[in-house]
Amino acid sequence: MTGRLLSYVTLTLVLAFLLGPFLIIVAAALSAGETLAFPPQGLSLKWVFKVFEIESFRNSFALSMFLAVFGTLAALILGVPVAYAASRYKLPFGETLRTIVSAPIIVPGIIVGLALLRYLVIPLDVGIGLALFIAHTALILPYAVRVVSASLENLRSDIEEAAVILGSSRAGAFFRVVLPNIRNGILAAFILGFVTSFNQVPVSLFLSGPGVRTLPIDMIWYMEITYDPSVAALAALLAFLSIAIVFLAERFLGFSRYV
């Protein structure tokens, strides 16, 4: 009996910790007051509309979108061949390769960001935008490799040989029978990469310059200057966007199989 009670209490606490902040943010976003506060002072949608009028949010949203889409694409262009090679050939340095590829998730983001700033941006005079692109690509790469590898694992390699015997070239076999069968894995990797990039804070924190900031960093900046509920409104909008993406992905891809 006490065991049961205990598990209910634990479950409730876990849910409260997971959902609590989200509910508080949503409530704060709907405030009619002038400052970020909980409980909200009255209810209104005015801060939600305000979000769309703030120019720096619009710019940083565009940058974050660009990084999430193109960083993920770049990571997939690099990651799919790596995953394919690792699954089909006994690579002499296979294990080393896997370690190198996963390094960006193991090394704390703050260190990656600092390293890129100190050894790429400053000495080589690489633009912040390019540095951000490189950083995001590198951060997404491990996820891309891992998710695509998982779906390659379920695909027998003899179908490629079957395609070759039926007249296809080796490369043709990859495009005709491998790619279509790992399509869902690639889409899942894209979504995971997109969300990872979009929510990335520690690396992007170091890689920001005048007018060049990703959305999360811009939100921190904004809050340091203006303490109104528009940040909460934006956070709530982003949360709903993420939920919608993951919901659709689960619905159409069975996303949870891949991550």
């Binding site: 003899d158 179908i159 040989e161 070759v164 039926l166």
Partner: peptide
């Protein structure tokens, strides 16, 4: 090369294209 030989092979695992 295998794709020019006109030799057929039925694999032990069948190796059908799942998609």
């Amino acid at each position: 090369p295998a794709n020019k030989r006109q030799v057929g092979l039925v694999f032990q695992s069948y190796a059908l294209f799942p998609h």
